[in-house]
Amino acid sequence: MSLSAQDIERIAHLARIRVTPDEVGQVQAKLEGIFKLIDDMQSVNTKGVEPMSHGLDMVLRLRDDVVTESNQREKFQSNAPEAAEGYFLVPKVIE
């Protein structure tokens, strides 16, 4: 497969990573090499194979519906770039 510059711009936007126009070419070249490696697996016939994500067959454990957490806002907001009146502040969002 080959990745276009537009592909790079599209996925960089989706991933919210700024890629400047002069970086696009380099990123594109590196990713192409990696996809060459990845595309090795495309030839394998996997028809009817059940995909696997965890080795041992796991089932979701269900937690009892009990409140176990208490307010730790001050501690949790100590890492915040910007917070006020209990809110995390971010650049204004316009809907």
């Binding site: 006020a84 995390f88 502040l89």
Partner: peptide, 15 residues
Amino acid sequence: KSVHDQFDNASGVDL
């Protein structure tokens, strides 16, 4: 939830 009118030039996020 976000509040948009409580802060100048910022939205406040309440989780």
